[in-house]
Nucleic acid binder design. Structure first.
Lengths: 153, 153
DNA sequence: TAAAACTCTATCATGTCAATAGAGTATTAC
DNA sequence: GTAATACTCTATTGACATGATAGAGTTTTA
């Protein structure tokens, strides 16, 4: 799995919408400001997520976007698969985006067996983490002191 | 981590060179035939791996390539990092290809914490698997009957 | 000495990516 | 009512990566 800027922006927008989840709607401008994302580009992304049924929108003044479902029902896996496609490192081990590769014997391919392990490891993580979980982490990180690790970089 | 065709070809070539590891040298043509890889393209890739110190070559008739070091000393992680760059899904959690991202507070970013987990999971696998391990898997798969899973696809 | 194999650089077509742009439509505060 | 705000939709741009092909070598040895 490799996240493009587009995918990263999508997750960051979902985090904002998750943290402000409720009956009301959040304007694009605010998400753009809070997350430092080009507004016009964000428009495209949110629109895309709306077509996918992830978001709902309200037009006009005081319009904006909100999650179509509760944050705990939206997994990162679903979002990333929609924006980026396969989670697997090579498409011959992808469950939903499978494509035959050019190797001589796919069923007995050693590389494939390693890639399948990598795929499973990643899927296990992003399938378990929901937008709700993301929000909890965000809140936790907000209140906790920074760990030593964060200063290394 | 996402493998390009180039990276996949590299691994498949290394598998052939690992299985035939010894003092002698394997001609490009043979690797190209066995693995169904365009010869001229493979040339570029092997040349690149030679510059990186992974392979050695011998020119002229009966020339070809061989591993510069024993198969157990070459990890998939090293190869993939050289061909593809970062193993991490986003470069802000990459150890060797770190780049600052545009999010408001990197140290307290919830998305980043998830991505770090994904990175660690993948790195753990490809850092442990060497070309030697790849060869063992290949031999094992050769002699074992196919599992039920292989027929699903 | 000719054939096989590596070497190096250049080029190509195609596609993707991130971003920008323009011309709308809907809604509502006033 | 109407202007301002915000979403909607399509198109386009420039930059870059990718996968592959091409040409003109050089080296080695059977």
């Amino acid at each position: 799995m490799k996240l493009s800027t587009r995918g990263e922006y999508a997750l960051r927008a979902l985090l904002v919408l998750g943290l402000n989840y409720g009956p009301h709607v959040i304007p694009i401008q605010r998400i753009s400001n809070e997350q430092n994302i080009p507004k016009r580009f964000l428009e495209q992304i949110l629109n895309d997520l709306k077509s996918a049924g992830v978001l709902e929108s309200k037009r006009g003044i005081n319009g904006g976007y909100r999650l179509a479902r509760p944050p705990q029902d939206v997994t990162l896996a679903a979002i990333i698969r929609h924006i980026e496609g396969a989670l697997a490192p090579v498409s011959c081990v992808s469950e939903r985006f499978y494509e035959k590769c050019s190797c001589p014997d796919e069923a007995r391919c050693a590389i494939r067996s390693v890639m399948r392990e990598a795929r499973d490891a990643v899927v296990k993580i992003v399938e378990r983490v929901t937008v709700a979980e993301l929000c909890e982490r965000a809140k936790r990180l907000q209140h906790e002191p920074l760990t030593a690790l964060d200063f290394i970089i």
